[in-house]
Design a protein around this nucleic acid. Structure first.
Lengths: 223, 223
DNA sequence: TTTAAAATAATAGTATTACTATCATAAATA
DNA sequence: TATTTATGATAGTAATACTATTATTTTAAA
């Protein structure tokens, strides 16, 4: 599977579109590596510039600050999930199977070499798990939300909620179940890796554990 | 209801016990007000010192950095939830009622003037909702976790999980359901307040909405 | 092809953050 | 009363999170 994912982010996220230049692409790619390595708090534009082989000032021409850069990365993930769901559900008729597929997509690593961008998918996955909530858990959510930057997340949430509603037309909280499931997919993976006593992780890997837990949860709620 | 909540936090969280002095108490109290006002990212020890009427150096004698101070505040919340659950469940025999009570405690504001500490409960509640995940979503979780600083969270999670297990002995993921429910309690309140399209918030307030959603979810899963 | 526009590099500078260190003084305790 | 302990006052440092300026290179338009 190889394809060109056209990724249109809200202009409020960046100053100059990083996909429009080689430098921009390098900035995003390297930031994924560096945020993975250092964690978001210790990640700085100065360190990134050094890694990319450019200057701090040049990075600032693409993103006003590191938060927006993280938002760009996470938006890419939300778009990608949305796309993958469309792609993988297209030949499925059964709603139960659709939900199972969505859970697999959310809890398992992004396939390497997909979307034709050479981001490190393993790193991106870890960043989503550890850092994604930091893009909205900020003091100025309201302001930034007005610029529609969270639309990709809301669209993804709505898409999954729609499948839940098709499966069970009477269920009253499809969107809350959807956002809870997305967040839990990340949390449970994080916990099973770092704070396992907050989970029931038995054996095997955190991906399989999380998907089994979520399948059980979602179908219990919807059935 | 008035009582003295003896709050024993792990020594790794602070340098000097803030409860042991007037200054220490003021530091914690004012930090709750200031983190609420500024958000954790913009909150600094310098601003806090100014507010408290002391110096930056004095604040540093209590906590190594602002992350540990947040951890102290959130630990207090975990302890408090744990205590409240014990307190409120003591005369309940019915497991269903126990679970309902737990959900009410988790989703509704801490009662004002309780625990005999005059923290602003409304602010504390907001801080828990917006900032609590930042105490463990950090690069050095493993290191800090070794010092047992997350024990209050694990204990709380285990306590709730035990009630789930009493209610349904066959359920396979009590701890994951417990941590998912705790996290969802915060997320759904946050979303319904700031990003309502990620929820099914109908009318009324975010507390009632969240508790209704969680009750439905938990009993569906356990029944 | 030249010319103008745009992007980048190189460099500098500033306010704030996140600390650490020193020393004097005040308060508590032995 | 002596002495430990806590706090205040002040200073200092490296790093962060930017902004600004000018020179140089690359790209696009005339």
């Amino acid at each position: 599977m190889d394809f060109k994912l056209s990724f249109s982010v809200n202009e409020a996220v960046f100053l100059r579109n990083p996909e429009s230049s080689e430098l921009g692409k390098k900035i995003v790619k390297q930031s994924i590596d560096l945020i993975f390595e250092l964690g978001f708090e210790a990640f700085t534009f100065k360190k990134l510039a050094l890694e990319v082989g450019t200057t701090e000032a040049s990075v600032y021409r693409y993103f006003v600050n590191k938060h927006r850069l993280l938002l760009y990365i996470i938006s890419w993930y939300w778009f990608y999930m949305d796309f993958m769901i469309d792609f993988q559900l297209q030949n499925l008729a059964d709603n139960k199977q659709k939900i199972k597929t969505i859970i697999q997509i959310l809890t398992h690593q992004l396939p390497e070499s997909s979307g034709s961008l050479d981001y490190n998918k393993r790193f991106l996955n870890q960043i989503v798990i550890s850092e994604s909530s930091k893009v909205y858990l900020i003091k100025d959510v309201e302001t930034i939300n007005k610029k529609e930057v969270f639309k990709p997340y809301k669209d993804l949430c709505a898409k999954i909620a729609a499948v839940f509603s098709s499966y069970n037309k009477k269920y009253a909280y499809p969107k809350s179940l959807s956002s809870t499931m997305i967040e839990a997919a990340h949390h449970q993976q994080y916990f099973s890796q770092h704070l396992p006593r907050l989970t029931d992780l038995s054996a095997k890997n955190k991906h399989d554990f999380t998907s089994r837990f979520l399948e059980d949860l979602v179908f219990s709620v919807l059935d």
